[in-house]
């Protein structure tokens, strides 16, 4: 009892420390590094709260993917500063504001946090209504993991829309390209200094990473895991291979690429409509078919998520394809 209490207290203190470093660190790189560490420690905290699915997602997306995107932004900013030392650079600090405004904003934030802390304690425990409902309804889906049951059966519409958001977020990133660069490839992720160690890593790690990613997706039906976590790991392996120069980033006009990005959502939508034809309604699964259909949806989603996340890291198209 006391041992776990000490462990939890330790986690809390580290979390707060990392949050403060993230907020106040002046060099952008330090802030991002602290933020990534914060995500990993937060994942541990979720494990302590017995929310392993949330922990996996936090580690993969909250820390890993977001951290990677932020590091990319920091590197870009550094390149810009070196290339154009005179130009105004983007700094990670609050622009000059009236001190009164800062005090008011800080007071509002502190007040909301204090009320939130007080209110959370008053919440009834646990929110019984749905926990019981999920337990009773889960056998009908053939799944063992209640989280997957919620994500792909009971609230499939949310997951369908979330998978679609990813596609449109990528369109948003691509929309920032120069008109002249449209249709071309994003800037190569290959590192400038060639390193044999990275090449070796890029060749050695992906087979294991891909296996692990596929396992995460496959296990999701009955244990913690799923398409988003598995897809993120696959994306990381792809990005590793890209950085080692072992593969090339595809051009955004590539039809196969577009199809790979949207196929997860399209198939999800198609199976949802098939449920209609099958008499169980939109996004319903016929009895006995649930698990098989959910696995097919998750497999395609894993693929689409991996490709989309990889392309998000690669960024906007940079150079037009030769005509």
């Amino acid at each position: 009892m006391t041992l776990t209490l000490f462990a939890d207290l330790g986690l809390l203190i580290i979390l707060l420390g990392l949050a403060i470093i993230t907020a106040f660190a002046r060099p952008a790189f330090v802030a991002v590094a602290a933020y990534m560490a914060y995500g990993l420690v937060m994942a541990l905290a979720w494990v302590r709260l017995a929310a392993v699915d949330v922990a996996l997602t936090e580690a993969a997306i909250g820390s890993g993917l977001t951290g990677m995107l932020l590091l990319g932004a920091v590197a870009w900013n550094q390149r810009q500063t070196e290339a154009h030392p005179r130009r105004r650079q983007i700094r990670l600090q609050v622009p000059a504001t009236h001190p009164l405004l800062i005090i008011v904003v800080a007071a509002v934030c502190a007040g909301v946090s204090a009320v939130l802390a007080w209110v959370v304690v008053t919440l009834p425990e646990p929110p019984t209504l749905q926990v019981e409902q999920v337990r009773l309804a889960l056998p009908a889906t053939g799944l063992g993991n209640p989280v997957t049951g919620v994500l792909l059966a009971f609230r499939a519409i949310d997951t369908l829309l979330e998978s679609v958001v990813l596609v449109f977020a990528l369109v948003g990133v691509w929309s920032l390209a120069d008109d002249a660069a449209w249709g071309g490839r994003p800037r190569s992720l290959r590192l400038v200094q060639h390193s044999h160690a990275l090449t070796l890593l890029g060749q050695l790690l992906p087979p294991f990473g891909v296996l692990m990613g596929l396992y995460l997706f496959w296990a999701g039906a009955d244990a913690p895991g799923g398409a988003f976590q598995g897809g993120t790991l696959l994306a990381a392996m792809w990005v590793l291979a890209l950085s080692a120069g072992l593969a090339k980033v595809p051009a955004v006009s590539n039809r196969q690429l577009r199809l790979l990005i949207s196929i997860g959502s399209l198939l999800f939508l198609a199976i949802g409509l098939a449920g209609w034809a099958g008499g169980v309604g939109f996004l319903g699964y016929p009895a006995g078919w649930s698990k098989a259909l959910i696995l097919i949806i998750e497999a395609t989603l894993t693929l689409s998520i991996a490709v989309t996340l990889g392309m998000l890291v690669a960024g906007r198209p940079h150079r037009a394809l030769p005509r």
Binding site: V164, V167, F168, V171, S253, R255, R258, L259, I261, S262, S265, L266, L269, G272, L273, W276, F282
Partner: peptide, 22 residues
């Protein structure tokens, strides 16, 4: 009932197809 669902998914399908085929 079907129309309510269609009202929601038709534009979604259109957007995904417009992106894919381009």
């Amino acid at each position: 009932k079907q129309l309510v669902v269609l009202a929601l998914i038709m534009p979604l399908l259109g957007a995904l197809l417009a992106f894919t085929i381009g």
